[in-house]
Write a protein that binds this DNA or RNA. Structure first.
Ligand SMILES: [Zn+2]
Ligand SMILES: [Zn+2]
Ligand SMILES: [Zn+2]
Ligand SMILES: [Zn+2]
Lengths: 121, 121
DNA sequence: AGCACAAATGAAAATGATTTTCATTCCCAT
DNA sequence: ATGGGAATGAAAATCATTTTCATTTGTGCT
């Protein structure tokens, strides 16, 4: 595997910590940085490995990467401007554990995201 | 828009109520049913419109369609065999509402899924 | 400086899901 | 039967992502 190109991370930050590989690439192009699309993909993959970013999917299936604290957490995302708040999910953790137990599931993980419009939008 | 081809829904049922468009297509082929891939996509899209199926994404981004009751609910999915249980999410509903309120978000929706290994796997 | 070798880069091709186009086939009401 | 709209599907187009592979870059060593 390869190490992440630092300019990719910098660009993701500049983008508001929330963008797809294609978007990061286009943003870098627009700002005159010379980089290949392949490198952007590789860098994001590497950041993902190192748990420096999080990935989730747009409705159309495109992967979006997001700067993220390492610990387990959930998100509140604005559908309008993309602003993201990391939130604590104690209730979810308990719910997931309870449900898994009830149906005899082992080795469980979960996803939970909230979407809406932020105060500004 | 077009109406769903009933054989597509029948096949999705036969597949355990859980499959991607490509999988439904391949399954129908294997069983000697004559149908075009385009029709499979269109039918699933239509079933989705009518809220007869649910869609979510595999890790690689492929859309999987699932027979689903119409009311709002969540899922417990087996990573091994794909078996899915519809579960009630009262705790989630409350959590989402609380969090949205706390950060002033309006017009909120949410997703929540639990993944694990079922007793048989 | 000059060399060797590994890691990083990126252009181009390959892949794979999904959508679009468009000509043909079906089906139904007149 | 017939005219027109709906349904169908083959083939092409799109689009994100991955793979290939040749080139460039960086680093340590002499
Ligand atoms: Zn907003
Ligand atoms: Zn959690
Ligand atoms: Zn199972
Ligand atoms: Zn819910």
């Amino acid at each position: 595997m390869s190490r992440s190109n630092p300019r990719v991370l910098a660009t993701l930050e500049r983008a508001g910590g929330f963008a797809s590989a294609q978007e990061v690439y286009r943003l870098m192009q627009r700002e005159g940085e010379s980089i290949g699309l392949t490198t952007v993909y590789r860098s994001l993959q590497s950041l993902l490995n190192d748990k420096i970013v999080d990935v989730l999917r747009r409705e159309d299936g495109e992967a979006i990467y997001r700067l993220c604290g390492g610990a387990h957490h959930h998100h509140l995302v604005c559908k309008g401007c993309g602003e993201t708040v990391e939130i604590e999910g104690g209730a979810i953790e308990k719910w997931a554990k309870t449900m898994a137990q009830e149906f005899g599931f082992r080795d469980v993980g979960h996803t939970a995201e909230i979407f809406g419009l932020c105060p500004k939008c």
